[in-house]
Nucleic acid binder design. Structure first.
Lengths: 240, 240
DNA sequence: TGCGCTCGATTTGTATCCAATCTGGATTGA
DNA sequence: TCAATCCAGATTGGATACAAATCGAGCGCA
């Protein structure tokens, strides 16, 4: 669990306290994206400080950093609150993501290595496994399905963005990512194995296009892919 | 100029110390982009604190924020240094910028208002004025030319990005911008009125395409525009 | 009842203090 | 002469102290 505990493992690595603030940033970002710290809730400096056994100073610096990243919002004399993205924010962010990931896929079609292609192919097996678990209905299967899908999805997109070779593009996409609650897409897929299967097939087609070195096709497919995800999320927002 | 002095105007605005850190972030960012604080130089907390009449605490938080924005790099126990982007960073950032501004222009062709179009048209006069000053050679004219071009260029790109209507896109482009030294493009244009004139004409053609509501053409043109800027900058880096 | 006010508890914002770390130059030893 | 070492000053990192602001409960008053 992303529970408190001393920030890093407080040992091993050459310098440890160097990354105190960085560790806090990661820890908080994790707890936010997993929902452990809820969207819209206030983050009390003293509380975080005690949980991690540090003073408020590094906590404040971590919060400033999260503010700059757009993950939280600092209100003067009130504190930091986890940002609640509006429908508009989500729609717009997905559009930008589509454009950027599309371009990344286009570049990846030129620059990808065989090893990276293999990773892309391997994710397909994991996606199928996730679909299988989703079909078998139980509560445990559902959690399992979720974990598998996360793993495959993260690996898939990370691989493409890395393979494109443009680190600035990678950076930009990462910050865009962090601004959105992480489980958005999953929440739209969860509960309907058909959607999950459709999603898996979209991934295969994208990998195919990259494999064929057809950059423009890969771009189109990935843009349609994010467009689709965006539509599903909006649907889920309107009628649950 | 962007010299020290109490951070904001220390008056008027309802709350002032609220934005102490925010004010520092802006002030420092300004001083960095104008070159007042040099690229690659260290930023001493104590020095900044004294210049603005505050303690090191808010300065440190401002630096954390600049670190998160990618403007500055914090090295453990050494301090903050203004990031020196590598050639690769610049090339990659311009590529991303091209993709994003291209998309912004495409959207702007659909959503732009008449008032915004007027602003776009007005910039042309300013660009021409800048060219005129550049031709007349003197040292003062050169500074004047620079100031005019900055004004026109900022207004032009800001208008398009605003007109596109996607705030996440705007945000993303802004952070990308802040990571690069602001005078990069100008330094490539400076000293050659022909390049400056060519640059002005590129802007006109982009405005034309948006005016005709030809989004795809606007995208192509703006991508070519940033591509051209990037090439000029690389040239300037290699043989001065 | 309902509205506005005051006051105490909580929380944030800034300054200050001390320890840990780094830099650069002087010193020492081969 | 040169390299390794060590020390002093400078600088950062984190904790603590204190001031300013906010929130909310309880009170008074119409």
């Amino acid at each position: 669990m992303p529970k408190p505990g001393p920030v890093p493992a407080a040992s091993s690595s050459p310098r440890d306290q160097d990354r105190l603030v960085a560790g806090l940033v990661n820890a908080l970002q994790d707890r936010i994206s997993t929902g452990d710290i809820k969207i819209g809730s206030w983050i009390r400096q003293e509380r975080i400080a005690q949980e991690y056994g540090v003073s408020r100073t590094p906590v404040r610096e971590a919060l400033r950093q999260l503010d700059a990243l757009g993950v939280v919002e600092i209100v003067a004399n009130r504190g930091a609150r986890v940002k609640l993205p509006s429908i508009r924010d989500i729609t717009e962010a997905f559009e930008v993501r589509g454009v950027l990931e599309g371009h990344a896929a286009c570049l990846a079609a030129r620059n990808i290595t065989q090893a990276q292609l293999d990773v892309l192919r391997e994710t397909d097996g994991i996606f199928r496994e996730a679909v299988r678990h989703a079909r078998s209905g139980g509560e445990d299967s559902r959690a399992e399905s979720r974990a598998l899908w996360y793993r495959a999805n993260d690996a898939f997109h990370a691989t493409i963005v890395t393979a494109c070779g443009n680190r600035q593009l990678q950076l930009t996409l990462e910050t865009l990512h962090h601004r959105m609650p992480r489980n958005l897409t999953w929440s739209a897929l969860d509960g309907d194995p058909r959607l999950l299967e459709e999603n898996a097939e979209e991934h295969v087609r994208i990998a195919d296009a990259i494999d064929r070195r057809d950059g423009e096709r890969a771009r189109e497919l990935i843009m349609a892919h994010t467009q689709r995800a965006q539509e599903l999320i909006l649907l889920r927002f309107q009628e649950p």
